[in-house]
């Protein structure tokens, strides 16, 4: 497949800068796939699995928040967090999920607590899902 230039940059640094053959990311309205020669587009990212094909190798990552843009062939993926599946600690995700569960099952939790716990739960689920794809 024809490669295209891709940059993945998070606040923690450049994750990837080079040629990729395919990128699939979860936007707020669903997954979009990007191949070489994609039309110029901009979309905000949701929470979910990202798939990147580099030199024929398929890699998975947990990718949350931020935006993806294709402008004149240059693809920029600017997520708030981006973790390759092999760097995810599934036990940490598990613990995080349990903490969220206790908040959610507590009747006295405030609305903001519940919102935070829900977001945490979602992140943990994404991480677990991605980690299992190693």
């Amino acid at each position: 497949m024809t490669p295209f230039p891709l940059r993945i940059v998070t606040p923690d640094g450049i994750i990837f800068d080079g040629d990729a053959e395919e990128l699939i990311v979860r936007t707020t309205t669903g997954d979009i796939g990007i191949l070489a020669g994609h039309v110029n587009c901009v979309a905000p990212l949701g929470m979910g699995r990202a798939t990147v094909v580099i030199e024929g190798q398929r890699r998975y990552a947990a990718c949350m928040g931020g935006l993806v843009s294709v402008l004149d062939g240059q693809t920029e993926l600017l997520p708030t967090t981006f973790e390759w599946s092999e760097t995810i600690d599934p036990h940490r995700a598990e613990r995080s999920m349990q903490r969220a569960q206790t908040v959610l099952s507590d009747k006295d939790s405030s609305n903001t607590d519940i919102a935070l716990a829900e977001a945490r739960m979602k992140r943990a689920l994404v991480r677990q899902n991605v980690a299992s794809l190693k």
Binding site: T27, T28, T29, I32, V39, N40, C41, V42, A43, P44, G65, G66, L67, L71, T80
Partner: peptide
């Protein structure tokens, strides 16, 4: 010639805070 998903307004509303 940029395609905004789902719509330009919504993209800006989400992207600007980010």
């Amino acid at each position: 010639d940029i395609v905004y998903e789902p719509s330009a307004e919504e993209v800006f509303d989400t992207i600007v805070p980010e």
